[in-house]
Design a protein around this nucleic acid. Structure first.
Lengths: 231, 231, 231, 231
DNA sequence: AATGAATGAGTCTTCATTCAT
DNA sequence: TATGAATGAAGACTCATTCAT
């Protein structure tokens, strides 16, 4: 159709779509090609192999993820805590709206853990290691976190976040909480016999804990609450 | 004879060992059989298929996970917060010592998320759905969380944890933080240009945040700290 | 049909048949399997890969080749020169009757040349190097030559071959001549404008040269000629 | 311009270089193009396909091979046997210095054998048959042999080679011996348990046999030996 | 003459799973 | 229970070749 512009993007988009509906493993390169309206061979012209394609997708995921961070950081007239709260909302929304991207990011974090441990580095697929996009990711993956940390710094400066907190550590803690939260949605959604927890019940509690963790002195008066719903 | 149950255990142990060293995908059923010293065919006598084997492994992981919870809960003379703190240490240690089990548990949480969403339930491998062990897991997976919640209740009762916290929600929040923490160890280990964070730096901050989240009134005087190192 | 005895042999025979009619490259593993009446997978059960199958075939070729040598060497009442002459006839006949085997042997000689040169050894397909049959061939390939050399020794002892000749060197020279002869049949068969050479013309001259090369003192009287036609 | 023929030569040279280092099969047309500094498409402008390129290369090999023959034949003041001896040295040197060319020549001889046999002619790749260069080769391939035969005739005339030998037959026999010699270098290099033969040992014996095969009456007095080393 | 994106037939290879014994 | 030969669907990847520009 109208998609003659960028073959690379076309392939990537097809991959996202197919990974979403069938999963990475169940998606064959030929499916991707067909869905993109091109030949199988051309897919290999643009991406060295399936892993490389997935790493390219992951790279795109990180870029987009970073954009979300940037958008929040650029918003005027917000305190650091408000930005951080907004960011949390955005991240959760991003995870919901772009499952494949979000999973790709989490998968990359796992890769990173293996990569950083000499013992486990060899477990990483050589194809992955050789991917240019993987190498690029190694360079840029911390960028979102960097922006997130800047939000915390901002919060400390404007008094919305406790002064004694260390920006990077604080941001990573928040992010890790969100990641855990996302993972936890599985069991939380479960209708156990004795344990009746639903996201709707968890949400406010989770949020309150998080905010109290961060709140600085100003908060007592201004009484900031998260804008929009996290969930 | 007494041999049956042993064979099953033998297979499972072999699987754990191989999944650890090569990963689930790279491990072939034949490898498992060979490592267990039995024939390929017999593996299929004890486990319907590879997915079923993995679900059995996951079940075992949950059992062992639950034992850790129980052990902590049984310890005498500890406040709720102390138990929770001990539990955190135990979980992190468990994750480190039993990577495959821990990954299996996280994988099950992902499955659960898909399972609970009618839209995504169909993405679950039919082999998984048919597994007896998967069905069993659906019944018992909340047990660890149940014990964890009891610790929070205990903490509220003994004043070590804020009274206004809801036990289940609080426990899941704590657990989700630990899960996120684990996931985050990948990027945290990274030596970025501007962002110099290492697990050793993150640890204390993460812990403090967590404890302050929970601390009740007693704490001011008793000054509880986590026993042992989380990491 | 009746071929239920030895699958390995069945596959090998199918391979020979197909390599003969289509060539090694043009023959797909699936063809071999189909021709053998088995599944593609089973072919890989018996042979690691296509190269391995080819090396197994080469091994068989050498075995059979060696048998020809042994048969000649065992023949009673023959002088060394007569045995050597018989052998030449046999080799040429073998080459004609078992083209694939003969080509496999020549191919192995090429491999050997590469293998013995550290500079070119890396040009050998890793699959070939890893083949058990290739390793076996490295051990046994000289056996035919050993028997051939024994024939020369015999000839020197019985006076049918010049005493000053060195057995191994002489045998290898003879064998190399046969190999060259075989290779040369291509152009010799050609109807050039100026050069009218046909195998029938070449044959006697080639033979005479060869025999004169070897003849000892006894020959003058006994007037031995090659039994049967070389060609 | 003068560029056309240069491009063709450029491609051919690149092909030789790559075939030498990686082999024909492992060399992709794209590699050849890249190495020649041109586009893949242009390669197909100059050569119909990969086979055609290889046949062009073979043609060049024959031309160069023939030049070697001519050079020897032109040398003044040499007897026929001396020329033939010189030629042998040259051929072996050529094989060593231009492996790809030499292999291409041998490959052509195999093709010729198939071509001359109606049964096997159909086994030749149609691409090869259609190649202009292959057709040309059919016409000119005997030229080196023609010159070689003239050397033998010369030797017979000047008494350095036995009068009873037939020139063509004799030359082909000599050539075939050299071909066989080359092929045999593989196993000869092998350190067998019982068979300790090395090229250095084989050389003199091989040469002596060859010379005695040819020597005429004059030789007894003149005592010609091969000039330079064959190996 | 020259480019290089695009094609797609062609093949090897893997491995979970079955089943006759 | 136990074996392991046998199956066959599935899929990644290559590369000679074409052709619009």
């Amino acid at each position: 159709m109208a998609g003659e512009k960028n073959k690379e993007k076309l392939i990537l988009d097809s991959a996202v779509s197919l990974f979403t509906s069938k999963g990475y493993l169940a998606t064959r390169m030929e499916d991707v090609a067909k869905s993109a309206g091109i030949s199988k061979g051309l897919t290999y012209f643009y991406f060295k192999n399936k892993e490389d394609l997935f790493m390219a997708l992951t790279k795109k995921a990180f870029d987009q993820f970073k954009d979300e961070f940037r958008d929040v950081y650029r918003s005027k007239g917000k305190s650091g805590l408000e930005m951080l709260s907004d960011l949390m909302v955005k991240i959760v929304a991003f995870a919901k709206a772009n499952q494949v991207y979000y999973d790709a990011i989490l998968n990359f974090l796992d890769l990173l853990k293996k990569y950083n441990n000499p013992e486990t580095r060899k477990l990483i697929d050589p194809k992955t290691m050789e991917s240019v996009h993987f190498q690029k990711l190694l360079e840029i993956h911390h960028e979102p976190a960097k922006i997130g940390s800047m939000m915390v710094s901002q919060g400390i400066k404007d008094g919305s976040i406790r002064a004694e907190l260390q920006p990077e550590i604080t941001f990573y803690t928040v992010w890790s909480m969100i990641i855990g939260y996302e993972k936890m949605l599985g069991p939380i959604d479960y209708e156990g016999k004795d344990l009746k927890i639903h996201p709707e019940n968890w949400e406010p509690g989770f949020l309150r804990l998080m905010q109290e963790m961060l709140k600085g002195t100003i908060q007592a008066t201004k009484k900031t609450t998260v804008q929009g719903s996290l969930f």
